[in-house]
């Protein structure tokens, strides 16, 4: 009996004390809360440091996405780069798990801190490449897939990627 009474008193005291602590909530939307860079919000497609689209349409993000919210298809232009001909995320499906970002070999797809994704019409939650592609590099500033990979693209020939030797001259007789 005593215990029950004591517990209630303690709760009352606790509540009273909170009146004087700093609130954790903010006056959203006038004031924005802090989100860590690792927060998993709205997904963006980023560009490499040269300003080219990072996504090479490898399809790995689509294949790991648990609710199958991503679909895309590859196209290859004359510059030799692979790109997404279309890239679609159905945000009414996305569970913001971040698996796509984890799977992406080029740092193209990244989850941002933006969480304001409400729409009145569900159809508006379907984002196309134009809606997803941002101008910057996002969280990862330096990585440029084509500087590492051996596929030649316009402006980067064979032998010019990271750790690459000059292309072999087949007509040379030297061993």
């Amino acid at each position: 009996m005593i215990n029950v009474f004591w517990s209630q008193l303690r709760s009352l005291w606790g509540v009273l004390k909170h009146t004087f602590t700093k609130p954790v909530t903010v006056r959203y939307p006038e004031e924005m809360p802090y989100y860590s860079p690792r927060y998993r919000g709205r997904i963006v497609l980023t560009r490499d440091p040269d300003g080219e689209e990072r996504c090479v349409a490898c399809n790995l993000c689509a294949s790991v996405c648990p609710p199958d919210a991503i679909s895309l298809e590859k196209e290859e232009r004359d510059d030799g780069r692979w790109r997404a001909r279309y890239f679609r995320i159905n945000f009414s499906r996305c569970i913001n798990c971040g698996m796509c970002e984890e799977a992406c070999p080029t740092y193209a797809i990244q989850l941002s801190q933006d969480f304001e994704m409400g729409e009145y019409v569900r159809q508006d939650m379907v984002f196309e490449k134009e809606d997803l592609l941002i101008q910057g590099t996002g969280k990862y500033h330096d990585y440029n897939f084509y500087r590492v990979s051996g596929k030649a693209v316009e402006g980067k020939d064979k032998g010019q990627a990271q750790n690459e030797a000059e292309p072999i001259n087949l007509t040379s007789l030297l061993p």
Binding site: N59, A62, S63, C65, P67, D68, A69, I70, S71, L72, R88, I89, N90, R93, V126
Partner: peptide
């Protein structure tokens, strides 16, 4: 993949 978005 893409069942939830290919025709979205």
């Amino acid at each position: 993949s893409g069942r939830g978005s290919a025709t979205a």
